[in-house]
Design a protein around this nucleic acid. Structure first.
Lengths: 359, 359
DNA sequence: GATATGGATGTTTGCGTAAACATCGGGGCG
DNA sequence: CGCCCCGATGTTTACGCAAACATCCATATC
């Protein structure tokens, strides 16, 4: 009604802007602003911004100059809305307390960045069904195109988990291979090499300090340990359990130290091995002379334990990389063929294992 | 111009939809879809979705039912576009290799979640100026309202870093207090209690195994160590440097073990202390009888070292929490009053420190 | 010289949401 | 009885971007 005075439509629009939006216009420049400064249409700005062809070199330069002058940054919300994708991967994980989770997460972030994706963290406070379900449902309104779940616990009951449609999932460290794409360390293989290493050294049998119940990784290492002993025709000693922490390893170690016929222990992770070493030391049982100890993970500190720990090296970086790769592949070819990818391990022999004392 | 045949505007619109968008319509339901099913306008759906008042209870129930039926999830991109905020905090960090960074990150994620914010990870591959600058510039087109920087290195040269306007910054572990809001552990205070503890035990002086050059935290611990010795009128022995890793602690430890008059070492972090313990053990120097060792961080494993490590406990959770709090406060009251908040430490005395042998 | 060709650029439109404004019926009050 | 007000709901519009389509002009071709 009052725009009639304008000679062209443009000034009127500017007018309207200034009238109302001035206070909020302090934000950042939009494509339209850049277009105005560069003297082109916003579409041309868009083309330059996305590196599309069909823009004259001279024009492109002008647009770039205008962008720089205004400090233009594409608005990712608008972009996401238009394109229908966020270029973001969500990672659901329970705590960042375990080395493995963190290292995997790190690799995921790095790989994702290389592919132009960013990573949004979805921490689950307590690993209960409800919490996990909560994380998944929050997910729905989150700006993510895909999700990677790093949850080793037995809580992925798919029946109760509602995944937002069209959000691809890859699971690290689980056994949901029939429903999701799973990437995991070759737990069984790693365990085999560990147990075999000890048997090869001449130990009659191998004890096992296991991880907590309810953990897939712990479960699988325990199963493989038992199977391997069985295959070698040895008797599996009773299971000793910890909760992954060094402290729990120490407590378990005090019990193990009291067993005179225990000469070799396969520990489900390096932290517990650290605690075990301490307990054995305190009780005067020498490692590796009296007892051989082998860990799992190969955390950076393992080489500095007393004595340096023989352990099974996990390639977390590769696991993370494969998770990202899997998720992206699924997104691109909407193919929902699940399956499990196993990442091989490597035995790192240091000084905590040796042949048993001949008696 | 051709919508005139419709009795009302609605059918025409539905028509248009079906014509074109059918293939892609597999996505998820929009507010309009919910509105149609519930027999209300999309605005009413919006009101329900945002928990606004002024909606009849009966209507609300119908809308909620429709939402459930269609599995409706608000589109966060559209929401962000409209509202002008993403409800997301970006975290720039160099690697997740150090315990401190990880624990801080975890606390940030948790605190942020409580405030309804999510956290996007921005890993910096190599801590070079260029890399950091790159991360910051990528940031511009990222969907974040604020940024928390966890970068202990001397790379925050503000002059070369262009922060997108209206993105608030909080820095953990730095000295940029004049330009940014900084939250950090009280490095100096922690160092003081550590050095004081050793002096109180009767040690003549305290050696220092420092972190890498270029690290703010290392720098400050070193400075405080020297200052504290000076204040107590002791001579500061030559500095020994590591790079935070256990391995570097071991190498430095071999040199320290060769110093007969060294009775007490303040190590800049627990990992290096682990390596030092190993070196001392190998060289037959007993801890704490011959040499007292004190660490910094109090990583979960510190209590399981041989011997259990006396160390300075850092409250990473609090640091993370304060970072989020600071960032949110800045966002809300656009106040740009900077300053540094120090989180106190706590000395945890275990078994790696003792009075020097009287000779 | 008329017509096709194609590169460079502009215009229109809609993504899903929510603010701003419009409408509509009924109850209170002069 | 008529007016106003208010609660409940609907309609319009713009957020910033980019796909689809439209336009324009210069050069090549017959």
């Amino acid at each position: 009604m009052d725009a009639s005075d304008g000679t062209s439509a443009e000034p009127a629009r500017v007018q309207a802007r200034n009238t109302k939006r001035a206070p909020r216009r302090t934000q950042s420049a939009s494509m339209a602003d850049v277009a105005r400064v560069a003297g082109v249409s916003s579409q041309t700005v868009s083309r330059v911004s996305n590196g599309f062809p069909g823009v004259n070199e001279e024009t492109r330069r002008q647009v770039l100059a205008a962008m720089k002058e205004l400090g233009y940054r594409p608005n990712s919300a608008a972009r996401a809305l238009k394109r229908g994708e966020f270029r973001t991967i969500g990672v659901i994980t329970f705590g960042l307390s375990t080395t493995g989770n963190v290292r995997t997460l790190e690799a995921i972030a790095t790989s994702a960045a290389q592919e132009g994706y960013s990573v949004t963290l979805l921490p689950v406070a307590v690993p209960t069904q409800d919490e996990v379900r909560g994380a998944f449902s929050r997910l729905g309104e989150l700006a993510v195109d895909a999700v990677i779940v790093i949850l080793e616990v037995h809580l992925l009951d798919a029946s109760t988990l509602s995944m937002p449609p069209h959000v691809q999932v890859v699971v690290a460290d689980s056994d949901a291979g029939d429903r999701y794409t799973v990437v995991d360390t070759d737990q069984a293989g790693g365990t085999r090499t560990a147990v075999q290493h000890l048997l090869d050294l001449g130990h009659r049998t191998v004890w096992h300090l296991a991880g907590p119940e309810g953990s897939y990784a712990a479960q699988r290492r325990t199963d493989a340990w038992r199977a391997e002993l069985l295959a070698a025709d040895r008797t599996a000693p009773p299971l000793v359990r910890g909760d992954w922490s060094a402290e729990s390893g120490y407590r378990a170690g005090l019990r193990i130290a009291a067993l005179p016929d225990c000469t070799a222990v396969f520990v489900a992770n390096d932290q517990m091995a650290l605690g075990l070493l301490r307990a054995l030391h305190e009780r005067g049982r020498r490692v590796p002379e009296d007892v051989s100890v082998i860990g799992f993970d190969d955390i950076p500190e393992a080489g500095s334990f007393l004595p340096p720990l023989t352990t099974v090296h996990q390639d977390f970086a590769e696991v993370g990389r494969l998770c990202v790769e899997g998720v992206l592949r699924q997104m691109r070819q909407d193919a929902t063929e699940h399956g499990t990818t196993l990442v091989p391990t490597r035995l790192v022999v240091r000084q905590s294992t040796a042949p048993p004392r001949s008696r």
